[in-house]
Amino acid sequence: MRAAQPDLVSRLATLVSRERRTRFAGGALSQFWAFLTPLSWIAFVVIIFRILNRSPAIYVPPEIFVATGVLPYIVFRQTIASISRTPAAHRYMKYISGIKDADLITATALTELVNALVIATVLFVAISIAFFVPVPNNPAGVLIALTVGWFLATGIGRFIAVVGMLSDSFARSVPILLRPVFWLSGIFYTATELPGAAQELLWFSPTLHVTELLRESYFIGYTSPISTMLYPVLFGATFFLISYPIEWHIIRNRLSKERL
């Protein structure tokens, strides 16, 4: 067991390095595009706020309020999208000795975690400087909230990736199924603004918990009436664990066909 561990770590490190080189093959320009998507989302929502003359429930500039809602959502969406397409996108890597679907999925997830934390840190700092916004009240809590969002997405993404090996139709339908998440993640609102019935209903949205956790850490004095770290962690872990029996079933079927 001890001899196998360094091999696993080395294999994952190589795959993560390869993933980053492939994704940012265009150099500085390709890295700029990684920041352009969240910037575009933030700008779009801020423009809507300005047009509707809407003020955030928290007494802060709209730019940072929107950023604290958009960035957790983008981490969630991008992580699921990258992991769910990994088995198909890197199917030829499995012909290399020792490379498994689980290794490819794990490497993609780790790559997304690094990218998410770097992008969020840079954008939060840039917005703070540009709009004279105070630094986060609890920077460690902000990073933890983003990591919780990534873990939630990793569990769901792994489940989608594995089930997608059985059903291509399911994999194609996932972007449609995830569209409502945009409206359930607290990008435009806080839980304190919701009436009692809506608050009870949206408690079941794990992404809203992530956004509320992040805003609690970012803005001094803000306390969410619903946020809990346990729920999104258990939600992601459930999908993560369910994916393993499905994956083992696929592997057994694959081995049976090879023997025939």
Rank of each mutant, 00 (worst) to 15 (best):
A3N: 08
A4T: 13
A4V: 10
D7C: 06
V9C: 12
R21P: 13
F24I: 14
G26I: 13
G27Q: 09
Q31A: 06
W33Q: 01
T37H: 07
L39Q: 03
W41K: 02
V45Y: 15
F49K: 07
I51D: 06
I51H: 09
L52K: 05
R54V: 11
S55F: 07
S55D: 13
A57R: 09
P62I: 07
T68A: 06
V75I: 15
R77K: 08
T79Q: 00
T79V: 08
R85Y: 14
R85L: 14
K94C: 12
Y95V: 10
K100V: 03
D101A: 11
A102F: 01
A102V: 13
D103E: 05
L104H: 15
T106L: 15
F124M: 08
A126R: 09
A126T: 11
I127C: 00
A130V: 10
F131Y: 13
V133F: 03
P134Y: 04
P136R: 12
N138F: 08
N138T: 10
P139W: 10
I144A: 03
T147W: 14
L152D: 03
A153C: 10
A161G: 01
G164V: 06
M165D: 07
L166Y: 14
A171T: 07
P175W: 12
R179V: 06
W183T: 05
L184I: 03
I187P: 10
T192C: 03
A197R: 02
A197S: 04
A197Y: 02
A198D: 02
W203V: 01
P206E: 02
T211F: 09
L214G: 08
E216S: 08
E216N: 08
Y218P: 01
Y222A: 03
I226R: 11
L234I: 10
A237I: 12
F239N: 06
F240A: 02
I242T: 04
I246N: 02
I251D: 09
R252W: 01
R254M: 04
L255C: 00
S256G: 00
E258W: 14
